[in-house]
Design a protein around this nucleic acid. Structure first.
Lengths: 153, 153
DNA sequence: GCCAAATTGACAGCATGCTGATTATCAGTA
DNA sequence: TACTGATAATCAGCATGCTGTCAATTTGGC
């Protein structure tokens, strides 16, 4: 284990780096300028209309500070709307806009394809096994980051 | 595959996020203020004394722009030295300092332990299989990022 | 109803990571 | 030798991701 390149930390970082690059190359032809993080946020807001930022962050395991900037940019692009909650004036409720809906519909096929491409070096069963192992490893250590994943009960 | 949380991209990102958090919590007791990226650079320079920045970047698959900042900070902390090459005045040759050597020796056990912790949710054979799959998946797509891995022949 | 604790969001600050452009230098060729 | 293309490093700029702090607001206990 002396070599950096054999360490799990390095390999995970490397695959993540490749995943982002693949994402961008698959997205580029659609003409939208969106990042993996922004796509995750957009998609999650659509299926959870009226969600606040903290809950959104929990659903996709992002830090709440990070999500603020992401939401800012999505609002600026006109893909999300953000308004102060009536019931809790601390909270900002997020909703997808019509433009966001259109963008999401066009982006989703490209994103799904990117998932395939990033595992294209593996056999079908290997890819499934990788997913299972990633799932198991992350579930066991969910609380180790400032941004744990929170499933909506 | 409709759910973000089931996508390989999300899971890889999540494990990477956890890996960084585990790294920091394992490193913290050693009293050193160093990041995963900085550790990788430091360790690689030690075993490749007199390396230039581009070659270093290639060995650990970092973007050459990113590595510049990383090296800056390591030099500032006194862990690396950087001097203009005599043979090629464009290049900056990197070497580990004595302080860097000491730091590396103290950090390495903690880093190796972090690798174990980040996979502590998996059985022994599962961890090995995960490594194999990560290796295979990244090897197949090595050229997909701006910072491909370059083995020294 | 009042106050302490918790919660939401924001901000400053630092460290990756990337794109694209520029500068300095080197190497091969006409 | 002069020129062209390639290469090492740097810079500006943008987007994560994190820590730590703060203000506004809500909630729970009394």
């Amino acid at each position: 284990m002396k070599d950096i390149k054999e360490m799990p930390g390095h390999l995970v970082r490397r695959l993540q780096q490749i995943a982002v690059a693949v994402f961008h190359s698959e997205i580029e032809p659609t003409g939208f300028d969106i990042t993996p993080v922004q796509y995750a946020a957009l998609s999650t807001v659509k299926t959870n209309a009226g969600i606040d930022q903290v809950t959104l962050a929990g659903l996709i395991a992002y830090d709440r500070t990070t999500i603020a900037g992401v939401v800012d940019r999505l609002v600026q692009k006109g893909l999300l709307s953000r308004e102060v909650s009536e019931k809790d004036r601390r909270a900002r409720l997020l909703r997808i806009t019509e433009a966001g809906d259109v963008a999401l519909a066009k982006l989703t096929p490209a994103v799904l394809n990117a998932q395939k491409v990033m595992l294209s070096g593996l056999e079908e069963e290997e890819a499934a096994e990788l997913l299972r192992l990633l799932h198991k490893a992350t579930a066991a250590l969910n609380d180790h980051s400032r941004a744990p994943l929170k499933t909506r009960s």
